[in-house]
Write a protein that binds this DNA or RNA. Structure first.
Lengths: 333, 333
DNA sequence: GTTAATAATGTAACCGCTTACATTTTTAAT
DNA sequence: ATTAAAAATGTAAGCGGTTACATTATTAAC
């Protein structure tokens, strides 16, 4: 593989000149530039970006840590981050943290040692403090899906509490007064917040909160099934169900059906996230829109702004969720 | 950020020694090793993997090119590749090709210039020849989802023709004799092969092939809807529908419902890929299992074997699809 | 206690590029 | 034509590691 030396030699110029035409920074005489470019083409030269990174102390790569690579959610985020970054000639190194403190830390370690110019983190287990330390000592960090006090400018987050509130409210306003809730993991801030929103809505409408109406899941479909089984056994009758995300809603609906409960005739359901498959469900699932694609894009823009000196980028840091009303809610009025 | 020099200085040894303890290759006296390790901890030293790559001519990274980052399919593949590679201390650089020749080429270019040790490609637009040239001239390549003559050992693929055949056959053996087909894009080899399988099944059971029963889609849900509209207008009545993938099946079912066609009572449907959301559909979709997770793992192993000298890895190159029978098929016998 | 073999450590070149600074060439003004 | 200023190009020192080879220390055998 041709190096810069060979190009320089063939073009009859020095290293530095070749480097200059590559980075088309300093002025290079037009004829010289042509000679060099001709040589590059002739040799099929590709700059070694490893060497570039070492010399320039810039890797032109952004490290991304997400909980999982699979599933309906993160793909869209990654896709948009990659797209936005790619436009600017940067690229992504992706790794998964599996919502586990140890592995998240490991993933960060890894990205830092790859000398990523910045990190985009979607993490749960790692503390705010750790993240702040990290960005002070090692590398610029943008956080997605979480709002860390003191670094608002580098966070892109959703108002989860409001989402939970809207979800419950939509059922209440459709005439439901007995609302069960399958929460996400309550140790995760988003699970906790969504649950708070649900409680706030109850309160606002003067409905009593009943702990038996709540079951905790882990965002996976299976946990939605288990939670539903539990609710059917232990909770008083209910006609509305708020779920912490769409997968758990799918699981819950499956179980409801097995118990002869018709959706939405006997039970109205609202999910959360608005992942693509909610449209394929039958009845189509009402859900809270989580604009994860836009948020991914914004996170990418934060990096572009902070690290690569881009200006004039519209950046939105805080997102408000909205209800996507579909057939899974029955109007009882 | 501490460098190897500082570590050497603090530990009172030379560069080379520090390097040795890092790569724990050559023997280092136990006390020396301890001194060095102590120094590393004290300084919070992290090797600069960029520098390591440059010096060793090994980037310890594997480039992956997939059509898309989002959607229900590739995430699972990526997830498994990352997992398998991570175990071996390697990492992935991921980029998307969008099924477009130009962008696929660009993506490859990019990965090559990052000096990936190997490439795992899931591409459609680029020719076999191009791939062969690439791996001869630049970098080891493993291809997934495609069988390239002459490089069987570096391909991990599915028998798509057999999948199409099984899909059609399952409907036929359930008593359906009028089968429509919504194919994937016919310029893609997998779309073409699946369609061939459908035709073979018809032939084998003595059913006439009718071009009006066929509509071409592009694997997106929307195209499934359009194809279904077309079939309902132009095709003779049919009670079975073979779809090129699950998304299109979801779209087609949606349209069928809008036309008052009940699934599976009036129409039995088979999808392809067995993506996770087929379980959430109602009725649950029968489909052809595409073991994309396993295949991702195998591709990773090919790289481990070819490039990183791993041995003793079980590698399966060719996969056979199987029917996942669910409620969307009505038994008419 | 020598000496040869072996183990541990050090030295320095190199990986392919960037970039500050030095040098040469060109341009423009006198 | 001379000279100063500006533009183009070249020189060489890194960037932070790896590794072949040289050197020194240790061990073992006699």
């Amino acid at each position: 593989m041709a190096t810069i030396y060979k190009v320089a030699e063939l073009a009859g110029v020095s290293l530095a000149t070749v480097s200059r035409v590559m980075n088309n920074s300093d002025k290079v005489a037009a004829k010289t530039r042509q000679k060099v470019e001709a040589a590059m083409t002739q040799l099929g030269y590709r700059p070694n970006s490893i060497a570039q990174s070492l010399a320039s102390n810039r890797s032109n790569s952004v490290g991304i840590l997400v909980p999982e690579l699979h599933g309906p959610f993160f793909g869209y985020m990654l896709s948009n981050i990659e797209l936005e970054l790619r436009k600017a000639g940067k690229h992504v190194i992706i790794t998964a943290g599996h919502s586990d403190a140890e592995r998240e830390r490991e993933g960060i370690e890894f990205l830092v040692s790859r000398r990523c110019d910045a990190l985009i983190l979607f993490v749960f287990a790692i503390s705010n403090e750790h993240i702040k330390t990290l960005r002070e000592s090692a590398v610029p960090v943008v956080v997605i899906g979480r709002l860390i006090p003191g670094m608002e400018d580098d966070c892109v987050s959703l108002n989860n509490e409001m989402g939970g509130y809207i979800a419950a409210k939509s059922l209440i306003e459709s005439g439901h007064r007995e609302l069960a809730c399958i929460t996400g993991p309550l140790w995760k801030s988003d699970g906790q917040k969504r649950f708070s929103g649900y409680k706030r809505a109850l309160k606002e409408y003067g409905l009593a909160f009943d702990q038996r109406m709540v079951a905790e899941g882990d965002y996976e479909e299976l946990s939605g099934r288990n939670a539903m089984e539990q609710l059917l056994q232990e909770a008083p009758p209910f006609t509305g169900l708020v779920c912490g995300n769409d997968e758990m809603a799918a699981g819950a609906i499956e179980i409801a059906r097995m118990h002869g409960i018709a959706i939405p005739e006997d039970l109205s359901v609202v999910g959360f996230d608005n992942v693509f498959f909610t449209r394929y469900m039958h009845p189509q699932l009402s859900t809270i829109d989580y604009p994860i694609d836009k948020m991914g894009q914004m996170a990418a823009r934060c990096v572009l702004r902070d690290v690569y000196g881009a200006t004039d980028l519209d950046i939105q840091h805080r997102f408000e969720p909205s209800l996507v009303r579909r057939a899974s809610i029955l109007e009882r009025i």
